[in-house]
Design a protein around this nucleic acid. Sequence first.
RNA 1: GGCCCCGUAGCUCAGGGGAUAGAGCGACCGCCUCCUAAGCGGUAGGUCACAGGUUCGAAUCCUGUCGGGGCCGCCA
Length: 581
Amino acid sequence: MNLFADIRTLVIDGLADMAAAGELPDALPTDAVSVEPPRDPGHGDMATNAAMVLARHGGLQPRTIAEGLARRLAADPRILKAEVAGPGFINLRLAPSVWQGVVRAALAEGADYGRSRLGRGQRINVEFVSANPTGPMHVGHTRGAVFGDALAELLSFTGHEVTREYYINDAGAQVDVLARSAYERYREAHGLSPEIAEGLYPGDYLIPVGEALKAKYGASLLDRPEEDWLAEVRDFAVAAMLEMIRADLALLDVRMDVFTSERAIAQSGQVDKAIAALRDLGLIYEGTLEPPKGELPEDWEPRVQTLFRSTAFGDDVDRPVRKSDGSWTYFAPDIAYHWNKVERGFDALVNVFGADHAGYVKRLKAVVAALSGGRVPLDIKLVQLVKLFKDGQPFKMSKRAGTFVTLRDVVEQAGPDVTRFVMLTRKNDAALDFDFDKVMDQSKDNPVFYVQYAHARIRSVLRRAVEAGLPVDDATLAGAALDRLSHEAELALARRIAEWPRIVEFAARGHEPHRIAFYLYELASDFHALWNRGNEDTSLRFLQEGDPAASQAKIALARAAGVVISNGLGILGVTPAEEMR
RNA sequence: GGCCCCGUAGCUCAGGGGAUAGAGCGACCGCCUCCUAAGCGGUAGGUCACAGGUUCGAAUCCUGUCGGGGCCGCCA
């Protein structure tokens, strides 16, 4: 059940009725008609802008339309009152039975409450993390991992067929550096002193890789020229790094459906095919780029190279795909990879990148637009920096020194649930402070705790009800006498519960999982408020001594809130707490 | 020089073209004989950086300016 969608349908039907009666022109566009809670609750339960939206197209006075529409809406049994206000809003007051129905629906639908068919089975690919396979995941990757996974779950919850994908950058110079670094550890495993030259990866995590190389190859790779061992050591080390990355992701319960290798794509000839496809579209040409504006690189000289006409799709300059020596640029495999995704038949693509990749957004969108003929939308979500704090001090990472803060460090200290929730309490394009002291704090200052505490209180109510001999399974609660829920404080919580399906769809449309986290905080706040009203007004307590029917209705409301918290945390990948310790 | 993100209460931040711009923290005042006070209620606090534009209506969209952060390569 999606109450807001239902009432919007009622509004649209009302408009159609007006058109049939000649009060409105036919076939006015209704896309912009919204039904939402008014900012000021004093205005009612819901408000629609329908009259104002249609007045623009129909050349009519908003209030004239509003009055005709309000009259029709008021005829519906769900609508207690429909009044025209302000510049042409229609404020709706809904019957208490509507809110009671929301509670019943939440209990009846359970884990499916809030699910939607928004995606209509659309196949969508979410590419995220895609960290270079040269070391463990660090804290910078953590946010992208959590964001991508939560977004994938959100899309799945809204009726999309989701593929979680990781692109392995295993073809560039950095994996050769990895191979050389691992080779030194291999020498070390043979008792030789490693020479970790400037530019190699110094981290200890390569020591076991060196041992493993020794176990596999014995001494056979020692004292051989690089060309004899580079490819084998590289493949071995990359595989080891990927195992480490998978294990790191598993700490956060992130699991990919598909790992795609850049090297495999390059070796399969897909780069040539993808470039040929662009060439067929007339988007590849030989040319010379203008020198960059501002300070000129010292070694700049104009050269003829193979270029992609990305400016035809809004990019700032055309982009080289082939260097002047004939080899591919880094961009070429990216083109091939996105061509590959389009060829695999996805209806939509999402890439989750670190903010340092902002410069690639336009060219990649250009590639996908060109290769899909504009059919496949590509949304690129840039995830901003995470700043770590501990004991009030910034916690710096330094990749050069090999002492960066890893994903494992963070998860082992804060736990997966806290890490995931906190990483989602900011929109992706705003920087995030992650303060170990604050996120571990057991108080309402900490949103993770606050939401978990609400859920634990609900579980506590249910446990006590069971002790009191009340049946509290969801089916029984859904059949409870919910008309006993009539107090304003109780209906307020039901109203919030009614918003859940709407929030889910909205978050999914915008690819914004943080909205789920903020909503859950508000829901928890409403629940805590109601709980405390029971301190002053005993009739608002969930357990009513000697009145099982009232108790059941009130417990049903609490349980419905619990269902929503549980569903919401499920999307975020956070385990709901049964009790607080 | 160009591009991207950010600028909303003292602080940290929400805010989908709609009505009197919200929450938490901090400050101040209250609330436990009572299902978990690990909580709740209230008060104070705002030229939504600035200037134009579009609109019946702009914190929101567009242009520009200023400030903070990030990026720029025949690197990956």
